[in-house]
């Protein structure tokens, strides 16, 4: 069974005449890590908005674990571009959000799960801090822990590291890979950074054109457990050049 499947999905934003996604079909396996890559403004985030139900396709079906999206009522593990930690809540209270809405978990159990999730992302003991007291990387990890607490096996990460400085970004990428190897959830990760895409994903899904009518799957010839130094291998350098060329072809000069 596929973790996620698009069948001839088309969509457009209300009030617009042209489709942003046109008869798109693709599917992903459970436990895989895919990066969706494409030029800015090509509609990558629109795909996420459809998967988490914020936008309804005008035609076609989206299946999650084999069931149509419209039939399942389940929290979805969406992590938006910016961390979106609520500034009036402590870190712990922020993590409680997905547990507070919908199902009402007993408070003791909720707190236990929050502590566990925080420890899991290396923020043990910081539940009572305010988000503004954390560094950029720590905030992203807290937001990631919150996304994990939705209980969704499919995580949708929308350029989560794009606002971080280069050094933090690199260490967060390694950290995320480690998390994935440990928990083996299905991850869809939007980025426009080719290197980030190659370092993280099992295979890259490249957006070929606007409107999006197909995603080109490009397998990354690396084992799941990889090192940054692997990226300088000749075949990866070639792959990177190829992807760059493709993306640059889309950007109107």
């Amino acid at each position: 069974m596929k973790a996620l499947e698009f069948r001839e999905v088309s969509c457009r934003y209300p009030g617009q005449r042209e489709n942003l996604v046109e008869k798109l079909s693709f599917s992903i396996e459970p436990g895989s890590f895919h990066c969706i890559i494409g030029a800015s403004g090509c509609g990558k985030s629109t795909l996420f908005r459809m998967i988490c139900g914020l936008l309804t396709p005008v035609s076609g079906t989206i299946l999650r674990d084999g069931a149509p999206l419209s039939e399942i009522e389940r929290a979805c593990g969406y992590m938006p571009q910016r961390d979106m930690l609520f500034p009036w809540r402590t870190v712990g209270e922020n993590l409680a959000l997905p547990l507070e809405v919908g199902s009402a978990l007993p408070k003791a159990e909720r707190n236990a799960r929050i502590e566990e999730a925080l420890a899991d992302v290396g923020l043990a003991g910081l539940a009572d801090r305010m988000p503004e007291e954390l560094s950029g990387g720590m905030r992203q990890r807290a937001a990631f822990a919150r996304t994990m607490l939705t209980g969704s096996s499919l995580l949708l990460l929308d350029e989560p590291f794009s606002a971080l400085d280069a050094l933090t970004r690199v260490s967060m990428q390694e950290w995320l890979l480690e998390q994935w190897l440990r928990h083996r959830m299905t991850i869809l990760f939007i980025t426009h950074d080719v290197e980030e895409a190659l370092f993280l994903s099992t295979s890259v899904l490249a957006v070929g054109s606007t409107p999006i009518c197909s995603l080109t799957e490009i397998p990354v010839p690396l084992p799941d457990r990889r090192r940054r130094s692997d990226l300088v291998r000749p075949e990866l350098t070639r792959l990177k050049e190829g992807l760059m060329g493709m993306l640059r072809g889309q950007v109107p000069a």
Partner: peptide, 17 residues
Amino acid sequence: RTEMLELLITYGATPFE
């Protein structure tokens, strides 16, 4: 912020929440 509202909608929040 719209993004905050949308985030909660993806968690399954009701309009009251």
